[in-house]
């Protein structure tokens, strides 16, 4: 019995490592959602659409302007982040005094608009985007399996970005203002901090994180208008499981659930698309506030 499981695990190792790659995207996206929610109290339903925009902007930069992957990794989040500033300034900022559900409805509408426009322009079939030359080449030999360099890079980049976000929020002066404003915005404003501008920039940063994930995803998944919408629903489940209380919690939950999904693909492939939702239900029954949440 045990030998059989070990044998299956060995065969399934690539799947499990791929699960880690998916987990990298869950982590980055739930991190962005948590950053936005912490400051704005808005669940950004357009997060999936902004992830997709990040991938498309990278594709456009390459095919229309001739700008390659590495500059796009910086430019695309900046461009999509600027779009986020526009959205926050013109629409979301009008809703802060209302019930939080209106923010969800507004961003859902925005997601429909963005996705619809891209579907009209680019169709539903995916566009190819090849990984940069430096990360192409032969797969890395990890001893127990061969891993394409690019996928390894995705995991590393996601971890580095998560760490950077954590450092900014926990260890810098700006992060201290942010955390203070999350607790009591009025008081922080009274101390002379421009809270509305901080809120706008927080939204832009969260959106930029989604776009960054989108650029990372472009060479793995084909670039298509629907790439964000199904992913974002899984990320919502991830957020419910982890709770939005802590950054490290979001990252751990994201990677962990990616792994679990990978394992499920090995042992019971039929359930691989639903396992995260099942876990969500179990966590809700056992610990409604989420694994890392504060009730």
């Amino acid at each position: 019995m045990l030998e059989e499981i070990l044998f299956q695990l060995e065969l399934g190792l690539p799947q499990i490592v791929l699960g880690l790659v998916n987990g990298a995207f869950y982590a980055l996206l739930s991190l962005g959602l948590a950053v936005i929610f912490g400051m704005l109290n808005v669940i950004n339903f357009a997060h999936g659409a902004q992830f997709m925009m990040g991938a498309f902007v990278a594709w456009m930069l390459l095919n229309w302007v001739g700008i390659g992957y590495w500059p796009a990794l910086v430019l695309s989040p900046l461009i999509v982040g600027a779009f986020g500033v526009l959205i926050e300034k013109t629409m979301i900022s009008r809703l802060y005094k209302l019930d939080h559900l209106y923010g969800l409805l507004l961003t859902f509408g925005l997601a429909l608009i963005i996705e619809g426009i891209f579907r009209n322009e680019f169709g539903s079939s995916g566009l190819p985007y090849s990984p940069p030359a430096a990360l192409g080449g032969p797969p890395v030999d990890l001893g127990f399996m061969f891993l394409p360099k690019y996928r390894l890079w995705v995991v590393v980049a996601a971890l580095a970005m998560s760490l950077a976000t954590w450092l900014v929020i926990e260890k810098t002066r700006l992060g201290a203002y942010l955390r203070a404003a999350t607790e009591n915005a009025a008081l922080v404003q009274a101390f002379g901090v421009n809270v509305p501008r901080m809120v706008t920039l927080t939204y832009a940063a969260g959106v930029a994180l989604a776009a960054f994930a989108g650029v990372l995803a472009a060479p793995i998944y084909s670039v298509n208008p629907q790439m964000g919408s199904s992913l974002i629903i899984v990320v919502f489940a991830v957020v419910v499981i982890g709770g939005m209380g802590s950054i490290l919690g979001s990252v751990l939950t994201g990677f962990g659930l990616g792994l679990v999904e990978g394992l499920t693909k090995v042992f019971y492939p039929e359930a691989s698309s639903t396992v995260i939702f099942v876990i969500m239900a179990i966590v809700l029954l056992a610990r409604p506030a989420g694994l890392f949440g504060r009730a």
Binding site: M91, G109, L112, N120
Partner: peptide
């Protein structure tokens, strides 16, 4: 475009 129009109605209703 129907999706886009629905999205616009959503946004307009909320705002």
């Amino acid at each position: 475009w129907v999706t886009v129009i629905q999205g616009v109605i959503f946004v307009a209703c909320v705002l």
